[in-house]
Design a protein around this nucleic acid. Structure first.
Lengths: 236, 236
DNA sequence: CAATCAATTTTTGTATGCAAAATTTAATAT
DNA sequence: ATATTAAATTTTGCATACAAAAATTGATTG
């Protein structure tokens, strides 16, 4: 697998893969927010941002409205938009909902995944293990996300996948501030082993429980990073 | 925070309660879609719609993008937007996800609801019973929605409430075509009795199960109305 | 009559213009 | 110097303008 550079060109964006400008702007702007290049609570100056993305204010404003519905930006009347704050309480909420969604996905995936699907996920899992062994955090995260994504796909529920993706953007955003201790990291990998095992045995109840716990543990990490402390109630 | 919580749609949206035009247009347009005044797969002609809503194309297009993120409209490149089709498979997907969300909400509500909250919900329940007894379907449905909304509120998770609201719009849309048999209706009321009972006893596991079943039964109704037949797998 | 295709009209996608609101700056008074 | 407030600037929100892409119309041909 070829190494992926995470440096993103500031000005030039490949708009070519999108037929429509505002769709490209949605993806580009979401990326800026998720990677933290646009920090939480940063003001979105329309003139400046439009220039940076090489477009006019109109498609940018449309993209902002779209992302507002996703919850990544907040609209302030007569004051434009800001990147949604990254509050511990909000994170707790998102993780609780994601836990329920992934649990559902895991259960459904055990019913609906083909053997080829499971084989694919296993392959991704081994890639992830390799990057874990080498301590390559960025690549580890990449495969981690791909695995979760593939499990969602196997649930065969587009609505579930879309809902998950929108909320997962918040988690991806937090990832850029969470610095994983080796201990925690090893634990997460171990959980993934169990998840793959449960999926292979098509043990829906087990996978469901594992995913819920996995998410709860991820939440603990994020809360530590955000310095919010883990609000005990409801997190499990 | 984006105001996703929309109270029961009034006939006429008072633009005065919104500071900004495009927010009013979002609510008004969502209302048109949910009530079926704009039918599924109807083309959204920007010029015509803007005139109908008394605005220009710019705020309308921003509203369309927002609702596209909610899934109520679909964007077709270079061909504008259409009201999202009301496909049986999509409905099945939405109900499965809503089932998981409401189950989660029920569990959390049993933990977090105050006694006053429960008393409020009981009051709504009796209103609903009264309308059921009188055969007032529209009012029944109104209180039904309010009860579900209040349960979601009691989960004390704004993200959960917002996610639920967005998906629930699809269900509200389907309601306008589902004609409830007296038998089914009585059954639904009975289920609500049990739900209220479980909430009062703060039996989270029970309420969770009841809500999931309740949603599954609602799905059957909608599927009959849509003539799609119930896809057995995954619905339970 | 059906089919094809060019001309016309309509519609979308994006850019720009303009007024109102918010922000910043500057000036004055305390 | 700090606080206050009035003027200047910037920014937002909405309307309009314009080019490119679709849809429609209508003529022409087989």
């Amino acid at each position: 697998m070829t190494p992926v550079t995470h440096s993103i060109p500031a000005n030039v964006t490949s708009l070519s893969e999108h037929r429509l400008l505002h769709e490209a702007v949605i993806d580009r702007l979401r990326d800026l927010i998720v990677t933290g290049e646009l920090a939480p609570e940063a003001k979105l100056n329309e003139r400046v941002l439009a220039e940076r993305l090489g477009t006019s204010r109109t498609p940018l404003r449309e993209a902002i409205k779209f992302l507002a519905s996703e919850g990544l930006v907040e609209l302030v009347p007569n004051r434009g938009a800001v990147v949604a704050p990254l509050k511990p309480e909000k994170m707790r909420e998102v993780f609780v909902v994601l836990g329920a969604l992934e649990a559902l996905a895991g259960e459904q995936a055990c019913r609906n995944a083909s053997e080829a699907d499971i084989a694919d996920i296993r392959a991704l899992h081994y890639h992830m293990l390799a990057h874990h062994a080498r301590g390559e955090l960025a690549q580890y995260f990449r495969y981690n996300q791909l695995i979760h994504q593939r499990i969602l796909d196997c649930a065969r529920n587009v609505t579930l996948s879309q809902t998950w993706s929108a909320l997962n953007a918040h988690v991806r955003r937090a990832r850029y501030m969470a610095n994983l201790s080796r201990e925690r990291w090893d634990q997460a990998v171990k959980e993934h082993e169990e998840m793959l095992d449960a999926l292979s045995r098509r043990d829906g109840a087990k996978l469901q429980a594992l995913l819920r716990d996995h998410l709860a543990n991820k939440l603990v990490l994020v809360m530590e990073a955000l310095g919010g402390g883990v609000a005990a109630e409801g997190a499990r």
